[in-house]
Every structure is written in C-alpha cells, then in structure tokens.
Design a protein around this nucleic acid. Sequence first.
DNA 1: GCAAGGTC
Length: 798
Amino acid sequence: MVAALTPLRTPSHSWFPPLQVAEKPSIALSIASALSGGRMSTRKGSTDVHEFDGMFQGSYANFKVTSAIGHVLSVDFPPAYQNWEGTDPMDLFEAPVLRSECNQRLSDTPAEPVKLPNPNVIECTGIPENEAGRRIFRARFSSVTEKDILSAMDNLVLPNKDEALSVDARQEIDLKVGVAFTRFQTRYFQGKYGNLDSRVISYGPCQTPTLGFCVQRYQQITTFKPEKFWSLKTYIIKDGDEIQLEWDRKKLFDFDVTVMFQKMVASDGTLKIADVSVKEECKTRPSGLNTVNMLKVASSALGIGPQTAMHLAERLYTQGFISYPRTESTAYPASFDFRSALAVLVHNPLWSNDVRTLLDAGFVKPRQGHDAGDHPPITPMRSATEEGLGTDAWRLYQYICQHFIGTVSPDCRYTRTAIEFTSGGETFHCVGYQVTHKGFTSIMPWLAVSENSLPAFKKGDSVSIHKVDIYEGSTTPPDYLSESELISLMEKNGIGTDASIPVHINNICERELRKKVSTDTTGTTLIRGYQCIDADLCLPDIRSFIEQQITLIAKGKADHLQVIQHVIQQFMKKYSYFVKKIENMDALFEAQFSPLADSGRLLSKCGKCGRYMKYISTQPMRLYCITCEDVYYLPQNGSIKLYKEIICPLDGFELLLFSMVGPDAKSFPLCPFCYTNPPFEGIDKLFGALKIDDTGKVGKGAGMPCSLCPHPTCKQSMITQGVCACPECSGTLILDPVSAPKCTGDKVLQLNSPFDLIASGCLKALHSPTEDGRLKIRFEFKENEQSTTQTNLVNPNE
DNA sequence: GCAAGGTC
C-alpha cells in the first residue's frame, strides 16, 4: 500500500545519494525517523527533506527522504472542450485528456527541479530513463513501523507500472463520465426550469450512489404502510414486584387469533417454569479506531459532521495530540508500545483511575482488528485539556482517549439469566442481566450492559398469572438515514475512501440535494429519474464496476488502453440511452419545478424576435426568450440591469450592465448574445478574454463583454473605448462607462476586463491629462490588506 | 460551472 521510491545512481565515476520519495509528508517523516534512528536533519520546504547518513546496499550513503503531497497529476480536458456551449457532452468520452501537476514540486532532487509525475514520481526525479546507473526501487511495507520499513528496505522491489496505469485509468473514466452527464443534465434542466436554484446538477459515480442511499431510505419512509399488530403481555407478582413477561410469538397481525391465545392462557391461570438458564456472557472490547469509525461516532454521538470531524482531527494531529487520523486499519502493529501510550494519559483526572489500574494491574492487548497496511489506528499521543483545545476538539479528543483506553481494557462480563414459562400451550420468558466485570464499559459508559435483576425462580415451580393483556401496536417506518448509517453503507459498497467520504457527503448537502426535511427535493427527483431510465446510474454497482475493471490493469491482467476503451464504451451507451429517455426524468421535474416562461421578470429585448426576455435571477443567472426558447447565460455573482437601452449593432440584442459585488465593484456592459457567443473568431486568443493561469489552465466562465469587443464603430467596443496598454498585464485600459469621477478632471478607467482587474489586484485606475498631452494614470493596488499606488505617464494613442 | 481522490 505505502511505497517509497529509491532512485539511485551508482556509476563508477559519479555517485549520487539515494533519494526516497514517499507518498505524503507524514510517511517521509516516519521513514526517515526509522532509518536514521531519529538522527536526521530536516530542511523545510514545500515538502520537507530529511537527511541522514546510513548504509544502503552495503555502502555508506547520505540519504535524502522527501515526499509528494497526495496525487502528483490531475487530469482535465483540453481548452477546446471547456466551453459548455460549443461542446457536445457525448464528444467528451472520446476527447483527449491533459495531465498536469496537481499542487506540488519535489523540493530536492538530484538533477533538475521536478517537471512531471508512480512512474509519475519517477519522472519527477528528473533522472532520464536511460541514464546509466539509474536504479529505481519501490519499498513496500504493510504498516508504517520501524520494523516493517527496515524489512522493506532489505526487500526492495521494482516499481509497478501497472498500478500507476490503473490510477490514471480511474481518473480518466471518472472525469469523462462525471463531466459528460453533469453538463448534459445541468444544461437540459436549467434550460427548462426557472426555480431549480442550483449552479449545477451534478452526476458522479460516487456522489450519485451516495445520494441514492439517502433517497432509497426516504422512499422507504414515504411509501411505508403501517400495519396493526397485537401481542400478549402477561404479568406475574413475585416477591411483591410485578414482572412483565415477553411472549415468544412476539406479535401477530391477526386480532382474533391473538384473542384466542389470550383466552387459552387466561383459562389456564398459572405459568409453569419450564426452564431456568444462567450463562456467563461477554461484550468484547473495541479494536483500534480507524477514520471511518471515528467519523461515525463523531456524527452519531457527538453531533459533529464528517467534514468538521476531519478538520478537528487534523488539527489534533498537527498539534501532536493524536496519531495520524487518516487510516483504514483497526489492528495495531505487533511492536506497538501500549504501556507508553497509556502512561501519557495517566494525569487526566477524567480517566486517571482507569489508566492507573490498567498500568498497575496489567492491561490487555486490543482485539485483533483489520490490518489495511497503512497507519496504525488513531491513538492519543499527548495529554490535553479542554481549555487548550476548545470544546469540539476536546470532545473528539476525549472520545479518542476513551476508545483507546477501552481497547486495552478487559472485556465486559455479565451473567444472563433467562426464565422460560408455559401456560395454555404458549411460551413466555423474561431475561435478567447482572454485570460481573465492567471491563472497558467503565471508560465507555455508553456501551454498558444495562442491569436488571430477577427474583429467584426454580424449574418446575408454578406462579399464578396476575393479568394477561392484549397490546395493540402498529409497525413504524425506519428513520431517515443517519450520517453514521450512510458512512457504513458507503464503506460497505466501496464508495469513496476514508479521505473522500466526508467530501461526497458534503457535496450532496451543499448542493441541496439531500435535505432532512420530509419534502421532495431536486435530489429525490433526480434519483427517481435515474430509477425510471436506467437504475444502474444511481446504484453502487456503478462504482464497483469501475473499480473491478481498473483492478485488472493493476494486476497486469489487461491492457490499460483496452480497459479504458471498454469502460468508456459502456458509459457512452448508457449516456446516449439516458439522453434519449431524458423526457421520462423530465416528467418528474415538470411536476415539481416552474417553467422558465413563468419565472423571473421581463428584461432586455431579444435580437431575434424583438420581444422582451425573462431574467432568471436564481443561480445561475440567465435570460430566457419565451418565443425563441433560447437561454443566454450571464456573468455570475453580481447584479444585472438594462444599459441605457442601447442595442448591439451585431445582433440587435439590448445591452445589459453587469456589476460585481463589493465596495470597489466594477461594472461592465455586455450583449446577452455576444457574451456567450463571441461574434469574432479567435476572440479569446486575440484579447485574452480567457485567462490563462500559472498552470496553463484556461479559466472558465469568462465570456465576451463589450469591453473586449473589437467592433470598429460601436461606442461600447474596446476599439472606441480603449485608452492605452495596461502597464500591469497584456490588456488594454478602457474608459469605465459608469464610474463617476471623484476628482475633477479625473476619469476612472478599468482594465480590459474585470477578470484582469481582479487577477492583477488592481482596484482603481484614475487618469488625468497632463500639459504635454500625455495621460497621468494612477493605479491603486491592494495586497495583504495594504493599499499601494503607482503612477504611470502614457501617450494615449500608443 | 463539471468527477474523484490525494493532501495541505
């Protein structure tokens, strides 16, 4: 599972030290500590580099250990496929994909700084593939312990390209499937309904089945039909106490039959004690705490959601209070020092008695759990107080401590006494519990066995019946799916991982797909839609299918390209069937949402039919022409109003003025049609409308406002409004059409697009003419809460 | 604006 990589060059003349690259910083630290016996020096950087001297394959060597930070490469579509308008989602399945660096550079490499990425990491080291003496190994260990790391170093293996290829395949499949379905259904429903009020209607092989679990339970509840049932409750009086006996038949769904049994028992009048059984039973202590179990307890017992719980746990980890919080393992490594771990907790009055007893009288080893080959279970490392941590962090820490102490405490032992009675041919019973050893339940009292003592009964004796009643009850639906139950279902079905489960749950909550209220939501409608078109789309099998296919790649049983092609083809079939049958889902949306024509208010005349369009102000902001049935998307996160009733000379649409929010917000005019359908080919490349960021990725959502338009005569275009080149970027300064000048003689300018303004941090640009005909331009920038100004002198016509 | 999965 965990791997470190050791590229080593040992040609006879040049000698390079072994470099080890772990998958994440926490593991680099563990490896370096284990190999150096804690005697290493650490250089801080984007990723820390730990250095120490030691022996490698029989020679002295200066080791360097560093790490990646999670995945090295992420995957996305090329710019040409980023445009929602111009791309048929179907084409995405066969589109090329680009891999780019996620968020990291290895901070120390023998050659050049890191360029690119399991082979990924190998390429990152910058050592050419055919370099003489390049030797690359993989250290495989099953737990991050000194013993396993040392033995992994003695048993190095060659890197496995198949495993890396299977990860790449999953990325590509998830991207193509998710994005294609998401874009199609978002566009389809946003183009028809005005009150969906969500930016996207997303689909994904993890998030959708997760939502499916919630909706499935919701459906069980709403379609539940309660049924009446009846039961016999028989009472006796023993030693002055009334005792209620349970009927072995529990309940019957037929009243007349229940009455018949009641008469049989009542006419007998006595109960014979048929059996008395006394058994010693035990409730076993927990095994080590892993992430998923911690999240379940946090949600159900502490009321802390998965996302928050993970944040708290990460903070507790970085502050040294607990061990690494992301782990699947519930088994401790054989070498784990429980005594030291316990000793850390001895001074906290809350559990000092329990801990002292365990240290003095002897503790037990935790129950054997599951060893996933990653980090040990989550364990307290340092003593803490509530004041030092804050309430919620403290409650989580307290649970982690109690759980740990529980794991090394004895099992809880109790005596279970069951008495069996017969009367009129019917059998009844009562059960008593008597705890003999509290064991771990004294530190985890919520798991305690509840005691109830029974008077002494002797087999063969008889007692008279005090009364026998009929109890009428009714079956009840299950509760809404709790977060804790959802986590269990996801884990059981292989949906997400310990790291991503909180993210998926958060996604469906944030996108308002899952609500606890008992009303239909977009989420329930979506799932009902999949159910009637292609139920596979919202079932967990969709994830297991992908996982099972890419496992073939990882195990070298199938060619990665063939697997990707096969899986993509399956999804293309599903996609085209879904598109063909979307009206079945639409029938459900129609019943729940209002058509665009009934939403919003009239604003701006359509250039095609001359009638006013509807402005939909719920996100995403857009215009809808009822006559033409066309939708025009607007810039988001701001306000929009009509702009001086000016008509775009290119298409006859009425211009709008968009204003961003905030104190220094900029405004710019736009034509609703041009904005998403730029009239000039290559506009994006010519004028930098689409921002290219540091990673070379094209920014999304930036359309063409008038201030980018190269129309030669229109008063709003860049050509007529442009003043000069911007000294800060490659753009052009444009006269701001609306900002009122604050000082006489000054005019407020803005860069060629509001996106540039934000990108360069420029708040304002004021200009005033100078005597020699040039313009004095003062720029105001804001960085780290500090405002600075810069003044430039320019010739207006250059 | 879109997936999932890593980690900060």
